[in-house]
Amino acid sequence: MKPIATTRSATGIPTGRLAVWWLIASEIVIFGGLLASYVMHRIGHAEFGDYAAHTNTWAGAFNTLVLLTSSLSAVLAHEAAEKGQGPRAARMLLFTILGGAVFLIVKSFEWTAEIRAGYTLATNMFWSFYYTAAGLHALHVIAGMVAMAFVARDAFSNRELQRVELVGNYWHFVDIVWIFLFPLLYIAK
C-alpha cells in the first residue's frame, strides 16, 4: 500500500526526488569533510607532491571519461523514462551500470599496480588519503550500480519509472565527486 503521505507533494517536488536531494546534501558533507582534511594536509605538507607523482594520470583520466559517459547514458535513461519508454530507459541504465563496472575494473588494475610498487594504505599520509577517498567513492559507485540494477528491472516492464531519474541524480552526484577527486589525487603533483 502507498500511504497517502507518500503521494502528497506540497512543495511541488516529487517526494522521491526531494529525498534524493537531501541524500546528496548529506553526502556532500561526508566527502567534504574528507576532502577538506586532505586539502589541508596537501597544502601543509610539501612532500605530498613527490608522493603524488606516482599516481597514474592516464588511468584517472580514462576513468573520468568513463564516468562522464555513464552519466550521459543516465540522462538519456531519464529522458526515455519521461516519454514512458521503460525498456529503453532500462537499457540505458544497464549501459550506465556497464560504465560503473569498467570504472571499477580500471581502478582494480590501477590499485594492483600501485600496491605491487609498494604504495599501500599505510605507506604514508598521501596514500592513506588516496585509498580512503577513492575507496569511499568506489563504494558509492557500487551502491549506485546495485540501485540501478533494481530500478532497471522494474523499468523493463514500465513500472516505477520515476525512479530512473532518482538513481540518475545519485549517479551524477557520484560523478561530480570524481570530477573533484581526479585533479586532487592525480593532477596536482
Binding site: F31, G33, L34, A36, S128, T132
Partner: peptide, 19 residues
Amino acid sequence: GPLVAGAVMLLFDQLFGTA
C-alpha cells in the same frame, strides 16, 4: 558528515596502521 569521514579515518588508524 565530516565526523563520518573522520570515523572512517580513525577506524583505519586502529585497524590498518594509517597515520
